Simulated scan of single mutants.
Amino acid sequence: MVMPRIFDTRACELGEGALWHPLRQQFFWFDILGRKLLSRSGHLPGVWHFDRMASAAGWLDAERLLLATETGLAILDLPSGRLTNHWTFPSADAALRSNDGRADRRHGFWFSTMGKRAQPGAGAIYRYFQGEVRQLFNGLTIPNSICFSPEGEHAYFSDTARHIVWRQALDADGWPIGRQEVFLDLTAEALNPDGAVVDSAGGLWCAHWGAGAVMRYGPDARRTHTFPTGAAHVSCPAFGRRDLRCLLLTTAREGLSDPDPVQGMTYLLNAPIRGLPEPRVIL
């Protein structure tokens, strides 16, 4: 069995938001609780520190990322490290923070919020598209697994606390139509779906918090692959590199009473199926 290998030894308290930037040919990921963005280009590590929690990003161009943060959306200028507010939540709530997020196939950006103490039902999912932000779903506890089918006709999302991944039909502009349907009910296996990404064959790769693995499910929801890691909490995958066959996996130390050194490190897996390019976000 192919096993993930350690890509970056800097341990994250809560690694999340893995992203491959196609123009820079560079992986990025967040340590949410550490309030920083991490990266590695060749053997050179990079880090950007923030004054707030940030958790997910979409790429705008070669030098800018759109970030989901606890106060709203912000634009990060990578060369200078300057963070500029782009959209702020209308009513500030210090009990909430951002969580999962990903660009959709129509160049919008989906992002989620949740309680800083995972308060039941406090979470929601939003979409930014052509300058507009709409709340799409609410009443979630830990909204995760935001990703999109290859042609963009469906979105996926989960509530980790409920062990469920849903599939949602989308219209031609990428907005939800009709009601979501259960794609995976993982209650019986006590699996906790965290971040997810879709490959070129329409399979969903889902990181499972607490299970120490990333698992692939085909478009028919049948599990096809399981790849264990050395870390207990696997949190978010992202395809990258030139052939899009490398899968970056973030992990976390959060909640572990006596974590060994590999917990929270970032891993790289040679995937048997090619991924999809990460779409650009258009402001």
Rank of each mutant, 00 (worst) to 15 (best):
Gly81Ala: 02
Pro277Ala: 06
Arg216Pro: 04
Leu269His: 12
Arg253Ile: 01
Arg179Pro: 06
Ala92Val: 09
Asp194Lys: 00
Ile273Ala: 07
Gly42Trp: 13
Arg280Phe: 10
Pro219Arg: 12
Pro176Trp: 08
Arg82Gly: 02
Met3Pro: 00
Glu181Lys: 09
Thr229Tyr: 09
Arg117Ile: 04
His154Val: 10
Gly174Gln: 08
Trp209Asn: 02
Arg117Cys: 12
Arg179Phe: 13
Trp87Met: 01
Gln263Leu: 06
Phe28Asp: 00
Gly275Thr: 03
Phe89Asn: 12
Asp93Ala: 10
Thr141Met: 02
His49Glu: 12
Leu283Gly: 13
Pro237Thr: 07
Gly210Asn: 05
Pro261Val: 05
Leu140Ile: 03
Leu60Thr: 06
Leu76Gln: 09
Tyr217Trp: 13
Phe109Trp: 08
Thr266Pro: 05
Val262Thr: 14
Glu63Trp: 10
Trp87Pro: 03
Tyr217Leu: 07
Leu33Ile: 09
Ile273Cys: 10
Gly210Val: 11
Phe30Pro: 03
Tyr128Ser: 11
Arg5Gln: 15
Leu191Met: 11
Thr226Ser: 15
Arg97His: 07
Glu254Thr: 11
Arg64Lys: 12
Thr84Ile: 10
Ala231Tyr: 02
Tyr217Asp: 08
Val262Trp: 05
Phe239Pro: 01
Val133Tyr: 12
Leu76Phe: 04
Ser55Ala: 14
Ala18Phe: 04
Leu65Asp: 05
Gln168Ala: 10
Met1Phe: 12
Trp166Ser: 12
Ala207Thr: 07
Thr9Cys: 08
Gly123Met: 03
Ala155Thr: 06
Tyr126Gly: 01
Val234Met: 14
Gly174Cys: 11
Gly264Lys: 05
Ala221Tyr: 08
Phe89Met: 13
Ile6Arg: 14
Ala207Ile: 03
Asp93Glu: 11
Arg241Pro: 00
Gly34Arg: 10
Gln130Pro: 00
Asp61Asn: 15
Phe28Ala: 03
Arg97Val: 06
Leu283Met: 15
His86Arg: 14
Leu44Cys: 10
Asp159Met: 04
Trp29Arg: 08
